[in-house]
């Protein structure tokens, strides 16, 4: 099975459409909504975990894109500033999914963006503000 977390950005028109319903019906994909929001101009944002065969997941993503939904891997929207981070490990106390974890043998603090669900708790807790989550799309900011 293939599991990936995506950030979806819906334009005003598409946010009215039941695209997730079609995604499940047509591609037999399991989904889990990690975050969903309607922004002031009625454009939508959603963080979605998709699980299915690799072919189905990738075809599902393509299908979403034909609806004008902008799809981006969440992992690409999360980053750690390695110059700022001093690997204290405070973030590992709040990360609910072990995207931030400690390698016990040397107590290094590891960041695995693939596991991140974009909750943003690490962003406020990090004492040196090394964690960045940029979910706000430029296109929506201009809308």
């Amino acid at each position: 099975m293939y599991t990936r977390i995506y950030v979806l950005r819906f334009l005003k028109d598409t946010s009215e459409q039941p695209v997730i319903y079609h995604l499940v019906k047509k591609f037999d994909i399991e989904f889990n909504i990690l975050k969903a929001d309607i922004l002031p101009h009625r454009e939508g944002m959603m963080i979605l975990k998709l699980r299915g065969t690799k072919e189905n997941v990738l075809n599902g993503v393509k299908y979403l894109e034909t609806y004008g939904v902008e799809v981006k891997r969440l992992a690409t929207a999360i980053s750690r500033d390695e110059d700022k981070c001093y690997q204290c490990g405070a973030c590992t106390g709040v990360c609910p999914v072990q995207a931030l974890s400690i390698r016990r043998k040397d107590m290094a603090v590891l960041f695995d963006p693939e596991k991140c669900t974009g909750c943003g708790q690490c962003v406020t807790i990090c004492p040196v503000r090394a964690m960045q989550v940029s979910l706000e799309p430029e296109v929506l900011a201009e809308a």
Partner: peptide, 13 residues
């Protein structure tokens, strides 16, 4: 109870 450090062992080393 899960624990987390505030002191960097990595940097201490």
């Amino acid at each position: 109870v899960p624990t987390a450090p505030l002191s960097s062992i990595y940097m201490a080393r």
